[in-house]
């Protein structure tokens, strides 16, 4: 009897999860469909580009430069064990562009942007500002969701590109200043080693992570519970869901691009 009850509870949880996934998929399709239908709130889109793209540059830059430097040190130390220290420029480049650049930028965006979107929209919900939008003949999907979704889709790949470059430069700085590498050959090896597919995969991941970050923030914000606790829960859930979705999507995209 206990086993049946436990099974029933498990089944109910799985059904609940599937229903939530279905609602999220419908929300995603609905949000994306607004990208094809005017009116568009240009001012909101510009503000979102500023908030999500431009103002995230410092945190992305700092994350990338420290990661690139640490990566160079680790590769040098590991390569030293079997006399392969000279591969530092190539491995730093491929490591940053294919994996660390997109993933770390994605996670920083989840921390900085998804949390901000979820908290802002959840607060608007609990203070009836979203109801007020509706009474002013304004669709919240168009006014709140679409600008953030478009801005994240456009700006996160650009942030990833910036993060890739800064990360590589972090590795270059550490390698030339402390590991004895010569600057010009280091940079030549980096550029020669990278292939167009590496860059395409990096930017594609950035776009996908941007979409996921914005969608999670909007979804959990719009579905928040009441009061300060509801806003807090929505924010926490949005960041966790965005981070997990980014890591899962990263694995799927790596598989799609590089498994032969």
């Amino acid at each position: 009897m206990i086993a049946v009850s436990a099974l029933a509870r498990l089944g109910a949880r799985i059904l609940g999860l599937l229903a939530a996934l279905g609602r999220f998929a419908a929300f995603t399709v609905h949000a994306l469909s607004h990208a094809l239908r005017p009116p568009f709130h240009g001012r909101e889109i510009a503000l979102s580009l500023l908030q999500i793209g431009w103002l995230s540059l410092p945190v992305v830059g700092l994350t990338a430069i420290f990661t690139g430097g640490a990566l160079a040190l680790q590769i040098y130390a590991g390569g030293n064990r079997f006399g392969a220290e000279e591969v530092v420029p190539q491995i730093v480049a491929i490591g940053m562009v294919r994996e660390l650049g997109p993933v770390l930028v994605g996670l920083m965006i989840a921390a900085r942007v998804t949390s901000s979107i979820a908290a802002e929209i959840a607060t608007m919900k609990v203070t009836e500002q979203i109801d007020a939008l509706v009474t002013l003949s304004t669709d919240p999907m168009k006014y709140l969701v679409l600008p953030r979704l478009l801005a994240a889709t456009v700006s996160v790949p650009l942030l990833v590109a910036v993060g890739d470059v800064i990360g590589i430069l972090g590795g270059w700085f550490v390698s030339t200043q402390t590991l004895g590498f010569v600057s010009t050959p280091y940079l030549r090896n980096t550029i020669n080693f990278l292939e167009p597919l590496d860059i395409v995969s990096s930017l594609t991941k950035g776009a996908a992570f941007g979409v996921l970050s914005a969608l999670m923030g909007c979804w959990f914000g719009l579905n928040s519970g009441r009061g300060a606790m509801g806003v807090g829960r929505a924010t926490k859930s949005a960041v966790v869901a965005a981070a997990v979705a980014i890591l899962a999507a990263n694995m799927a995209l790596t598989e799609a691009f590089f498994s032969r």
Binding site: T127, E128, D131, A132, T135
Partner: peptide, 11 residues
Amino acid sequence: FGMLFQGGALF
């Protein structure tokens, strides 16, 4: 239509 919300609901 216009509406005055309980908490104001100003943006």
